[in-house]
Simulated assay, not measured.
Amino acid sequence: MRFIIRTIAAAVALWVAIQFVPGIEVNTPANTARYWGVLLVVALIFGIVNAIVKPLVKALGCAIIVLTLGLFLLVINAVMLLLTSWIAGELDIPFQVDNFYPAAFWGAIIISVVSWLLGLFIPDND
């Protein structure tokens, strides 16, 4: 149950980023069942990318992360969002992030903040 709630929270975070950042878009009519379905699928892809690829990238970039006092994590999060967009495109899912800066960079920041805020209301145990 917690997995489903976290996926929905990630979809809401993606929706907020789409609302505020030009260059991140879902190419279906807004506020339809298909639109929200696309957001849920993209949230699943984003979760898988963050679970598998992000730890590897963080391990390889550990020295840069320490050297930049953690600011390089913003770059890693933006790259994960771009990778999610690329995977969605390969799977013919109508989700697109236009470029690294400003779309992916600011989108990743918004998604992180909204996910964190929503995570405060999700209980840790079932």
Rank of each mutant, 00 (worst) to 15 (best):
A9W: 06
I87W: 03
N77L: 04
A104C: 07
G119A: 00
A63F: 14
L56E: 04
D126K: 04
A103R: 04
V113S: 05
I122K: 02
G107N: 10
I122T: 01
V16T: 11
I24P: 12
A13M: 05
A59M: 14
L81R: 01
I93R: 11
I122V: 09
D124I: 04
L73C: 02
F3Y: 14
I93C: 13
G107E: 12
D98L: 02
G47T: 12
L91T: 11
F95S: 05
T68G: 07
A51G: 04
G47F: 10
S115G: 15
A11P: 07
D98F: 00
L71V: 14
A78S: 12
L56V: 13
T68C: 08
R2E: 13
V75L: 13
I122M: 01
L83D: 05
L117Y: 03
I109K: 01
L117E: 02
L39A: 12
A108H: 02
V75N: 06
I5V: 15
G61N: 13
I122H: 01
I109H: 00
L73E: 11
F121T: 13
V41T: 14
V75D: 04
L39H: 05
L56A: 10
I18K: 14
A59T: 12
A108E: 00
V12S: 06
G70Q: 07
V57H: 02
F72N: 03
L14Q: 02
P123Y: 11
P22S: 14
L69M: 11
W36P: 01
N27E: 13
L82Q: 06
V57E: 03
L60P: 03
Y101R: 08
W15L: 13
T84N: 09
L74S: 12
V66S: 08
T84E: 07
I5P: 01
G61Q: 09
R34D: 13
P29F: 02
A59R: 14
N50Y: 08
P22I: 04
L82W: 06
C62D: 14
G107H: 11
I87D: 03
I4K: 04
V79F: 07
M80W: 11
L69W: 02
P102W: 08
T84K: 08
A104M: 05
F100E: 08
V21F: 11
V26T: 09
V66I: 12
G61D: 09
N125P: 01
L82M: 15
G107R: 05
A108G: 10
A104Q: 04
G70E: 10
I65D: 07
S115R: 11
I87L: 12
A9E: 08
V16W: 02
F46I: 02
F95M: 05
G61F: 15
W15P: 01
R34A: 13
L60G: 14
V12F: 15
V26H: 11
A9M: 06
A13W: 01
L67E: 06
V41Y: 10
G37V: 01
E25G: 06
